[in-house]
């Protein structure tokens, strides 16, 4: 397979802060790689290096066959970048924004206009195309910014936290747009602090913390690394713990854990549904009342917690606060 993005040993520090600490990345052609990590993990710094906005202290990166350090202009001509806050001109209309980007990629006037209209149509912005983008909703602006990254139909796309700060509905809409993009064959590097987003969109996930890749794999592989399925039982009466534990012991493939104030039991299981069925009938026969019972697979949150030793943090960035993510990145 051919790697459209390959970074080797990227290091970058800001004053005492080591933002990137020997990061390696590879994204094969046509694949989606999610760079997953909390605020300040180094995601944005990595994106800025790969898109020529920032020179690394050491290390190298090749994007679309072009060396980022030796020929930054050549890289810029082959990538599309959409940042974590929508970098569109608020006084320009959607059409004018895209037309300007087209001209700056080197398209002629007529070609730039045609391409702008095409993209507005594709992103459902035709109707709003002649309004200043100031009047757009957050989701519309984000789509316009993403459209800007696609103007030159670049072989490599880099999306830095494309849905941070969006409401849930706009987020789902954005996911659909991105999935459609990728089905068109583009290579995509995506950063996110939403585990669900990485799960939905990416072929491969690199978990990054303190400027280093700490794990890599598909969502399933990462989850498997944390442990397989387990049965969870929340008891109505904490006094029934002993009896419930005895039922679970029949299906458990490992140690049974007790948590949440002594009424929630978790048992790793091998058999999946069969184990769940067995548990249900066992609990019924023993007359143990439960509040909740289920078969759980580990979430990426669990993965994150087990890998980093700290939980993934809630996003601090919001559309009204474009600096926050960057500031935190710099402060760490």
């Amino acid at each position: 397979m051919t790697d459209m993005i390959r970074a080797t040993g990227l290091r970058k520090s800001f004053k005492e802060v080591q933002a990137l600490d020997g990061l390696d990345l590879a994204v094969p052609e046509g694949q989606v790689l999610a760079l997953l990590g909390p605020n300040g993990a180094g995601k944005t710094t990595a994106v800025r290096v790969l898109t020529t906005l920032l020179r690394p202290d050491s290390g190298s990166a090749i994007v679309a066959g072009v060396d980022v350090l030796a020929d930054p202009d050549g890289v810029r001509a082959r990538i599309g970048l959409s940042g974590q806050y929508a970098a569109v001109d608020e006084h320009l209309t959607g059409l004018e924004n895209l037309e300007m980007v087209g001209r700056l990629y080197g398209l002629g006037g007529a070609a730039a206009r045609r391409r702008a209209a095409e993209l507005l149509d594709r992103f459902g912005l035709t109707e709003a195309g002649n309004r200043p983008s100031k009047t757009y909703s957050g989701g519309m602006r984000r789509r316009l910014d993403l459209a800007g990254a696609l103007v030159a139909a670049p072989p490599v796309l880099v999306l830095d936290e494309p849905t941070t700060g969006l409401d849930p509905a706009s987020r789902v809409q954005m996911w659909e747009v991105i999935r459609e993009l990728v089905s068109g064959g583009a290579t995509l590097l995506l950063t996110t602090q939403y585990l669900e987003e990485a799960d939905r969109l990416a072929d491969d996930i690199v978990v990054i913390d303190h400027g280093r890749a700490i794990a890599q794999g598909t969502a399933d592989e990462l989850k498997a690394q944390t442990g397989g399925e387990r049965v969870e039982v929340v008891l109505a009466e904490p006094s029934m713990v002993g009896a419930a534990r005895a039922v679970l012991a029949e299906v458990a493939s490992g140690e049974i854990e007790l948590k949440a104030g002594g009424r929630e039991l978790t048992a790793p299981v091998a058999g999946g549904l069969a184990a769940l069925g067995h548990t249900v009938s066992g609990l019924q026969q023993a007359g143990i009342a439960v509040l909740d019972l289920g078969l759980r697979r580990p979430t990426l949150d669990d993965v994150f917690l087990s890998l980093t030793g700290h939980a993934s943090e809630a996003p601090a960035g919001s559309p009204g606060d474009p600096d926050s993510a960057e500031t935190e990145e710099a402060l760490r």
Partner: peptide, 12 residues
Amino acid sequence: KGIIDRFRSLPM
């Protein structure tokens, strides 16, 4: 406003 980042990522 981040527009400079957009410009700087373009081959201009």
